[in-house]
Amino acid sequence: MSGPLLRIEAATVRFGARTALDAVTLEVAAHETVCVLGPSGSGKSTLLRAVAGLQPLDAGRVLLDGADQAGVPPHRRGVGLMFQDHQLFPQRDVGGNVAFGPRMHKVPRGRREERTAELLDMVGLPGAGARAVATLSGGEQQRVALARALAPEPRLLMLDEPLGQLDRSLRDRLVVELRRLFDRLGTTVLAVTHDQSEAFALADRVVVMRDGRIEQAGTPLEVWRRPASEFVARFLGFDNIAEADVSGAVAETAWGRLAVPDAGPQGRRRVLVRPTGVRLDGGAGLPCEVAARGFRGGHVVLRLRPERGPWLDAECGLRDAPDVGERVTVSFDPEDVVVLP
């Protein structure tokens, strides 16, 4: 079949006066992994629920393989949904949870047991079928929930904050495992998360949502390199934003005159400088005072108070990080300066 596997057309959902989904249009191609990224309350979970048929639309359409899903109840849509807090069935053991979907689809017992064992192997819990759900740790619950969602072989797998409640190291490991698994299985995935690193690690394409609308869609690299708005930039953790007068390849800001990639938008704009582009080169740049510093793995994030203009975040190596209170001068790398549209 040509055409996208999932097509959402102008989907709108209202809760009273609040619009949770505002005419959202989105396509997911077969074998593609799309991550919807947004702060809580941006409507991303509602989007998944609408596709699953758990949330009726007030307007718009959801099409799977080109077929309008209006009036199709959740159990006939053939999609999988992994819930934020897993929602494993407490009265069933691990095997019973995984085998639930195939059982509902009348898969014969032998084939069902085979499939359950296979999936538990795949998620790294071989032989756990007889364990009670209550004895599982959070990470294990997450794996069982994933195996359960995959078991009925859904044409579209949806993940709601799949790694939301896990601790950081576990999350970093699982995100890699998930990506590898989806590549291997060729699963079509629509995931939502509020964690940008999770989204960028998992997705072929990222969709940033705000107040029920899509703010930007693109590959992780595109979104990262060219945030479409100040909201997206700030949501990605970029706070170095200042008013600017852009003319040609020069932006006039409170921080001074910045070189920008030309052929961009002109006139009264806002510019963003990524922290990696704030260089502590000690030359004749902008004098700043180091107000705070924080360690992030292999590098240091500095909070700088410039002589003029808004505060700046800068990244530098562990070895040459200045102390709090030291005075530094910074310059800006044109590669990391973005004029926001």
Partner: peptide, 14 residues
Amino acid sequence: DQRLREAAAVLGAS
């Protein structure tokens, strides 16, 4: 939990 019902529905239970 309502979502437990929903989880079962999405897995194909009428």
